[in-house]
Design a protein around this nucleic acid. Structure first.
Ligand code: FES
Ligand code: FES
Lengths: 144, 144
DNA sequence: TTTATATCGGATAAATATGTCCGACTTTAA
DNA sequence: TTAAAGTCGGACATATTTATCCGATATAAA
Protein backbone atom coordinates (compact mmCIF):
# COMPACT_ATOMS: atom_id res chain seq x y z
CA UNK A 1 0.00 0.00 0.00
CA UNK A 2 2.52 2.57 1.21
CA UNK A 3 6.31 2.51 1.10
CA UNK A 4 8.09 1.60 4.29
CA UNK A 5 9.28 5.20 4.58
CA UNK A 6 5.69 6.35 4.45
CA UNK A 7 4.63 3.87 7.11
CA UNK A 8 7.34 5.16 9.43
CA UNK A 9 6.33 8.71 8.57
CA UNK A 10 2.71 8.18 9.48
CA UNK A 11 3.60 6.39 12.71
CA UNK A 12 6.04 9.16 13.63
CA UNK A 13 3.40 11.82 13.04
CA UNK A 14 0.84 10.00 15.11
CA UNK A 15 3.33 9.70 17.95
CA UNK A 16 4.24 13.38 17.63
CA UNK A 17 0.60 14.36 17.59
CA UNK A 18 0.07 12.63 20.89
CA UNK A 19 3.12 14.31 22.47
CA UNK A 20 2.44 17.72 20.96
CA UNK A 21 -1.12 17.67 22.17
CA UNK A 22 0.29 17.87 25.67
CA UNK A 23 2.65 20.65 24.74
CA UNK A 24 5.63 18.34 24.54
CA UNK A 25 8.31 17.55 22.01
CA UNK A 26 10.05 14.33 21.00
CA UNK A 27 13.65 13.79 19.89
CA UNK A 28 14.71 11.66 16.96
CA UNK A 29 15.83 8.88 19.28
CA UNK A 30 12.61 9.00 21.27
CA UNK A 31 10.53 8.88 18.11
CA UNK A 32 12.45 5.94 16.68
CA UNK A 33 12.04 4.12 19.98
CA UNK A 34 8.33 4.90 20.16
CA UNK A 35 7.59 3.58 16.70
CA UNK A 36 10.35 0.94 16.57
CA UNK A 37 12.09 2.20 13.44
CA UNK A 38 15.74 2.52 12.39
CA UNK A 39 17.06 5.80 13.79
CA UNK A 40 19.02 7.14 10.81
CA UNK A 41 16.35 6.24 8.29
CA UNK A 42 13.73 7.86 10.46
CA UNK A 43 15.85 11.02 10.54
CA UNK A 44 15.62 11.30 6.76
CA UNK A 45 11.89 10.94 6.82
CA UNK A 46 11.48 13.53 9.58
CA UNK A 47 13.63 15.92 7.57
CA UNK A 48 11.32 15.51 4.62
CA UNK A 49 8.26 16.09 6.77
CA UNK A 50 9.88 19.19 8.27
CA UNK A 51 10.76 20.53 4.82
CA UNK A 52 7.15 20.01 3.78
CA UNK A 53 6.12 21.93 6.88
CA UNK A 54 4.07 19.13 8.35
CA UNK A 55 6.20 18.95 11.46
CA UNK A 56 8.60 21.44 13.06
CA UNK A 57 12.20 20.67 13.91
CA UNK A 58 13.91 22.35 16.85
CA UNK A 59 17.68 22.16 17.06
CA UNK A 60 19.91 22.21 20.08
CA UNK A 61 19.50 20.85 23.60
CA UNK A 62 15.92 19.95 24.47
CA UNK A 63 15.30 20.07 20.75
CA UNK A 64 13.46 17.52 18.68
CA UNK A 65 10.30 17.53 16.65
CA UNK A 66 6.77 18.69 17.31
CA UNK A 67 3.52 19.47 15.54
CA UNK A 68 1.97 22.86 16.07
CA UNK A 69 -0.99 22.20 18.32
CA UNK A 70 -3.20 24.52 16.32
CA UNK A 71 -2.65 22.43 13.21
CA UNK A 72 -3.44 19.03 14.67
CA UNK A 73 -6.95 19.27 13.28
CA UNK A 74 -5.79 20.52 9.92
CA UNK A 75 -3.07 18.03 9.05
CA UNK A 76 -4.47 14.88 7.48
CA UNK A 77 -2.97 11.50 6.75
CA UNK A 78 -3.19 12.42 3.11
CA UNK A 79 -0.78 15.32 3.66
CA UNK A 80 1.77 12.91 5.08
CA UNK A 81 1.38 10.31 2.36
CA UNK A 82 1.60 12.99 -0.29
CA UNK A 83 4.80 14.39 1.22
CA UNK A 84 6.54 11.02 1.23
CA UNK A 85 5.03 8.81 -1.47
CA UNK A 86 3.64 11.52 -3.72
CA UNK A 87 0.40 11.11 -5.61
CA UNK A 88 1.16 7.69 -7.09
CA UNK A 89 -1.63 6.03 -5.10
CA UNK A 90 -4.14 8.20 -6.86
CA UNK A 91 -2.61 8.69 -10.29
CA UNK A 92 -1.18 5.22 -10.75
CA UNK A 93 -3.05 2.38 -12.42
CA UNK A 94 -3.69 -0.72 -10.37
CA UNK A 95 -2.46 -2.91 -13.20
CA UNK A 96 0.64 -0.79 -13.82
CA UNK A 97 -0.36 1.07 -16.97
CA UNK A 98 1.37 4.43 -17.31
CA UNK A 99 -1.33 6.48 -15.61
CA UNK A 100 -4.81 5.63 -14.56
CA UNK A 101 -7.00 6.92 -17.37
CA UNK A 102 -10.75 6.43 -17.55
CA UNK A 103 -10.77 7.19 -21.27
CA UNK A 104 -8.65 4.15 -21.98
CA UNK A 105 -9.13 2.09 -18.84
CA UNK A 106 -7.50 -1.15 -17.83
CA UNK A 107 -9.93 -4.05 -17.35
CA UNK A 108 -10.06 -3.41 -13.62
CA UNK A 109 -10.19 0.36 -13.67
CA UNK A 110 -13.66 0.79 -12.26
CA UNK A 111 -13.16 -1.78 -9.55
CA UNK A 112 -9.87 -0.15 -8.55
CA UNK A 113 -11.30 3.34 -8.69
CA UNK A 114 -14.00 2.52 -6.20
CA UNK A 115 -11.53 1.21 -3.67
CA UNK A 116 -9.04 3.97 -4.28
CA UNK A 117 -11.65 6.67 -3.86
CA UNK A 118 -12.57 5.19 -0.54
CA UNK A 119 -8.94 5.15 0.56
CA UNK A 120 -8.59 8.75 -0.58
CA UNK A 121 -11.66 9.78 1.35
CA UNK A 122 -10.36 8.04 4.45
CA UNK A 123 -6.91 9.64 4.27
CA UNK A 124 -8.28 13.10 3.55
CA UNK A 125 -10.86 13.05 6.30
CA UNK A 126 -8.65 11.69 9.06
CA UNK A 127 -6.68 14.33 10.95
CA UNK A 128 -3.77 13.76 13.29
CA UNK A 129 -6.05 14.74 16.13
CA UNK A 130 -8.55 12.06 15.18
CA UNK A 131 -5.97 9.35 15.24
CA UNK A 132 -3.96 10.36 18.30
CA UNK A 133 -6.86 9.93 20.67
CA UNK A 134 -7.31 6.17 20.80
CA UNK A 135 -3.58 5.87 21.16
CA UNK A 136 -3.49 7.83 24.35
CA UNK A 137 -6.16 5.62 25.81
CA UNK A 138 -4.14 2.48 25.18
CA UNK A 139 -6.56 1.25 22.56
CA UNK A 140 -4.07 1.34 19.73
CA UNK A 141 -0.36 0.77 19.25
CA UNK A 142 2.48 2.14 17.17
CA UNK A 143 4.74 -0.84 17.72
CA UNK A 144 4.37 -4.42 18.84
CA UNK B 1 -0.76 -1.98 -4.27
CA UNK B 2 0.72 -4.98 -6.10
CA UNK B 3 4.30 -5.69 -7.09
CA UNK B 4 5.19 -5.08 -10.70
CA UNK B 5 5.53 -8.82 -11.19
CA UNK B 6 1.98 -9.24 -9.97
CA UNK B 7 0.70 -6.53 -12.29
CA UNK B 8 2.30 -8.29 -15.24
CA UNK B 9 0.91 -11.59 -14.01
CA UNK B 10 -2.65 -10.30 -13.85
CA UNK B 11 -2.38 -8.65 -17.24
CA UNK B 12 -0.93 -11.83 -18.75
CA UNK B 13 -3.74 -13.93 -17.31
CA UNK B 14 -6.40 -11.58 -18.63
CA UNK B 15 -4.83 -11.71 -22.06
CA UNK B 16 -4.62 -15.50 -21.90
CA UNK B 17 -8.23 -15.72 -20.76
CA UNK B 18 -9.32 -13.84 -23.82
CA UNK B 19 -7.27 -16.05 -26.16
CA UNK B 20 -8.14 -19.29 -24.41
CA UNK B 21 -11.82 -18.51 -24.53
CA UNK B 22 -11.58 -18.90 -28.28
CA UNK B 23 -9.65 -22.13 -27.95
CA UNK B 24 -6.34 -20.46 -28.73
CA UNK B 25 -2.94 -20.30 -27.14
CA UNK B 26 -0.36 -17.53 -26.80
CA UNK B 27 3.43 -17.76 -26.84
CA UNK B 28 5.71 -15.97 -24.42
CA UNK B 29 6.63 -13.41 -27.06
CA UNK B 30 3.02 -12.82 -27.99
CA UNK B 31 2.01 -12.36 -24.37
CA UNK B 32 4.81 -9.90 -23.67
CA UNK B 33 3.82 -7.95 -26.77
CA UNK B 34 0.15 -7.95 -25.81
CA UNK B 35 0.74 -6.60 -22.34
CA UNK B 36 3.87 -4.57 -23.11
CA UNK B 37 6.16 -6.24 -20.60
CA UNK B 38 9.82 -7.32 -20.65
CA UNK B 39 9.99 -10.77 -22.25
CA UNK B 40 12.43 -12.53 -19.93
CA UNK B 41 10.85 -11.16 -16.78
CA UNK B 42 7.45 -12.19 -18.01
CA UNK B 43 8.80 -15.69 -18.59
CA UNK B 44 9.62 -16.00 -14.90
CA UNK B 45 6.17 -14.92 -13.89
CA UNK B 46 4.49 -17.30 -16.31
CA UNK B 47 6.62 -20.12 -14.95
CA UNK B 48 5.39 -19.32 -11.46
CA UNK B 49 1.78 -19.23 -12.60
CA UNK B 50 2.23 -22.55 -14.42
CA UNK B 51 3.81 -24.14 -11.34
CA UNK B 52 0.83 -22.92 -9.30
CA UNK B 53 -1.42 -24.52 -11.91
CA UNK B 54 -3.22 -21.34 -12.80
CA UNK B 55 -2.10 -21.49 -16.42
CA UNK B 56 -0.83 -24.38 -18.54
CA UNK B 57 2.46 -24.32 -20.44
CA UNK B 58 2.81 -26.25 -23.68
CA UNK B 59 6.30 -26.86 -25.00
CA UNK B 60 7.51 -27.24 -28.54
CA UNK B 61 6.37 -25.69 -31.82
CA UNK B 62 2.92 -24.14 -31.61
CA UNK B 63 3.42 -24.24 -27.89
CA UNK B 64 2.86 -21.41 -25.46
CA UNK B 65 0.51 -20.81 -22.60
CA UNK B 66 -3.21 -21.22 -22.15
CA UNK B 67 -5.89 -21.36 -19.50
CA UNK B 68 -8.18 -24.36 -19.43
CA UNK B 69 -11.48 -23.07 -20.73
CA UNK B 70 -13.41 -24.96 -18.10
CA UNK B 71 -11.58 -23.10 -15.36
CA UNK B 72 -12.06 -19.54 -16.63
CA UNK B 73 -14.99 -19.13 -14.28
CA UNK B 74 -13.17 -20.68 -11.37
CA UNK B 75 -9.87 -18.81 -11.42
CA UNK B 76 -10.10 -15.48 -9.63
CA UNK B 77 -7.81 -12.49 -9.47
CA UNK B 78 -7.15 -13.45 -5.90
CA UNK B 79 -5.63 -16.75 -7.03
CA UNK B 80 -3.16 -14.86 -9.22
CA UNK B 81 -2.23 -12.31 -6.58
CA UNK B 82 -1.78 -15.04 -4.03
CA UNK B 83 0.49 -17.03 -6.36
CA UNK B 84 2.79 -14.07 -6.99
CA UNK B 85 2.60 -11.68 -4.04
CA UNK B 86 1.42 -14.12 -1.38
CA UNK B 87 -1.01 -13.13 1.33
CA UNK B 88 0.78 -9.96 2.42
CA UNK B 89 -2.08 -7.73 1.29
CA UNK B 90 -4.35 -9.44 3.75
CA UNK B 91 -2.05 -10.35 6.61
CA UNK B 92 0.11 -7.23 6.53
CA UNK B 93 -0.62 -4.11 8.58
CA UNK B 94 -1.20 -0.87 6.72
CA UNK B 95 1.21 0.92 9.01
CA UNK B 96 3.88 -1.77 8.75
CA UNK B 97 3.48 -3.51 12.11
CA UNK B 98 4.53 -7.16 12.02
CA UNK B 99 1.10 -8.59 11.27
CA UNK B 100 -2.30 -7.04 11.23
CA UNK B 101 -3.80 -7.95 14.58
CA UNK B 102 -7.15 -6.71 15.84
CA UNK B 103 -6.23 -7.62 19.42
CA UNK B 104 -3.44 -5.05 19.41
CA UNK B 105 -4.40 -2.85 16.49
CA UNK B 106 -2.51 0.05 14.97
CA UNK B 107 -4.35 3.39 15.13
CA UNK B 108 -5.67 2.91 11.62
CA UNK B 109 -6.54 -0.76 11.81
CA UNK B 110 -10.29 -0.45 11.48
CA UNK B 111 -10.08 2.06 8.66
CA UNK B 112 -7.62 -0.15 6.80
CA UNK B 113 -9.60 -3.30 7.45
CA UNK B 114 -12.68 -1.89 5.82
CA UNK B 115 -10.83 -1.00 2.65
CA UNK B 116 -8.86 -4.21 2.60
CA UNK B 117 -11.97 -6.32 3.02
CA UNK B 118 -13.47 -4.59 0.07
CA UNK B 119 -10.38 -5.24 -2.02
CA UNK B 120 -10.43 -8.87 -0.91
CA UNK B 121 -14.07 -9.22 -1.84
CA UNK B 122 -13.39 -7.69 -5.24
CA UNK B 123 -10.41 -9.94 -6.01
CA UNK B 124 -12.17 -13.07 -4.81
CA UNK B 125 -15.38 -12.44 -6.69
CA UNK B 126 -13.84 -11.46 -10.02
CA UNK B 127 -13.06 -14.40 -12.29
CA UNK B 128 -10.92 -14.36 -15.40
CA UNK B 129 -14.07 -14.79 -17.43
CA UNK B 130 -15.60 -11.69 -15.88
CA UNK B 131 -12.67 -9.55 -16.78
CA UNK B 132 -11.87 -10.87 -20.24
CA UNK B 133 -15.20 -9.81 -21.69
CA UNK B 134 -14.92 -6.04 -21.81
CA UNK B 135 -11.47 -6.47 -23.25
CA UNK B 136 -12.73 -8.37 -26.25
CA UNK B 137 -15.22 -5.61 -26.93
CA UNK B 138 -12.53 -2.97 -27.03
CA UNK B 139 -13.77 -1.33 -23.86
CA UNK B 140 -10.62 -1.98 -21.89
CA UNK B 141 -6.90 -2.18 -22.55
CA UNK B 142 -3.89 -4.14 -21.34
CA UNK B 143 -1.34 -1.66 -22.62
CA UNK B 144 -1.30 1.94 -23.74
C1' DT C 1 32.16 31.82 25.86
C1' DT C 2 32.28 27.13 26.20
C1' DT C 3 30.11 22.71 26.16
C1' DA C 4 26.70 19.42 25.46
C1' DT C 5 22.79 18.24 22.71
C1' DA C 6 20.32 17.95 18.51
C1' DT C 7 19.20 18.22 13.76
C1' DC C 8 21.04 18.53 8.69
C1' DG C 9 22.60 16.58 4.65
C1' DG C 10 25.80 14.26 1.67
C1' DA C 11 28.18 9.83 0.84
C1' DT C 12 27.96 5.14 1.23
C1' DA C 13 26.31 0.37 2.09
C1' DA C 14 23.02 -3.38 2.13
C1' DA C 15 18.81 -5.50 0.73
C1' DT C 16 15.23 -6.24 -2.38
C1' DA C 17 12.84 -5.96 -6.71
C1' DT C 18 13.22 -5.78 -11.45
C1' DG C 19 15.19 -7.21 -15.59
C1' DT C 20 18.61 -9.98 -18.76
C1' DC C 21 21.28 -13.86 -20.70
C1' DC C 22 22.13 -18.29 -22.07
C1' DG C 23 22.59 -23.26 -22.20
C1' DA C 24 19.56 -27.30 -21.41
C1' DC C 25 15.52 -29.60 -22.22
C1' DT C 26 10.98 -30.82 -24.56
C1' DT C 27 7.97 -31.41 -28.29
C1' DT C 28 5.99 -31.00 -32.83
C1' DA C 29 6.34 -31.23 -37.70
C1' DA C 30 8.79 -31.94 -41.75
C1' DT D 1 15.61 -38.69 -37.62
C1' DT D 2 16.39 -34.08 -37.72
C1' DA D 3 15.39 -29.21 -37.37
C1' DA D 4 12.82 -25.62 -35.54
C1' DA D 5 9.99 -23.59 -31.99
C1' DG D 6 9.25 -23.10 -27.60
C1' DT D 7 9.61 -23.34 -22.41
C1' DC D 8 12.79 -24.10 -18.05
C1' DG D 9 15.75 -22.55 -14.69
C1' DG D 10 20.04 -20.94 -12.88
C1' DA D 11 23.40 -17.21 -12.95
C1' DC D 12 24.08 -12.59 -13.64
C1' DA D 13 23.10 -7.35 -14.08
C1' DT D 14 20.73 -3.17 -12.94
C1' DA D 15 17.59 -0.10 -10.39
C1' DT D 16 15.24 1.18 -6.48
C1' DT D 17 14.37 1.18 -1.75
C1' DT D 18 15.89 0.82 2.71
C1' DA D 19 19.36 1.68 6.03
C1' DT D 20 23.86 3.49 7.97
C1' DC D 21 27.79 6.72 8.86
C1' DC D 22 29.83 10.89 9.88
C1' DG D 23 31.25 15.65 9.66
C1' DA D 24 28.89 20.18 9.63
C1' DT D 25 25.79 23.25 11.74
C1' DA D 26 22.63 25.31 15.03
C1' DT D 27 21.11 26.27 19.72
C1' DA D 28 20.21 26.20 24.64
C1' DA D 29 22.20 26.14 29.06
C1' DA D 30 26.00 26.31 32.20
S1 FES E 1 -6.62 2.56 -15.79
FE1 FES E 1 -6.03 0.95 -14.47
S2 FES E 1 -6.84 1.68 -12.61
FE2 FES E 1 -7.49 3.25 -13.93
S1 FES F 1 -3.00 -3.69 12.85
FE1 FES F 1 -2.53 -2.20 11.38
S2 FES F 1 -3.96 -2.69 9.86
FE2 FES F 1 -4.52 -4.14 11.37
Amino acid sequence: MFSRACEYGIRACIHLAQISKEGGRSSLKAIAAAIDSPVAFTAKILQTLAREEIIVSVKGPNGGYEVEASRLDVITLDDIVDAIDGNSIYRGCGLGLKHCNAKKPCPLHFQFKKIRDELKEMLQSTSLNDVATGLHEGLAFLKR
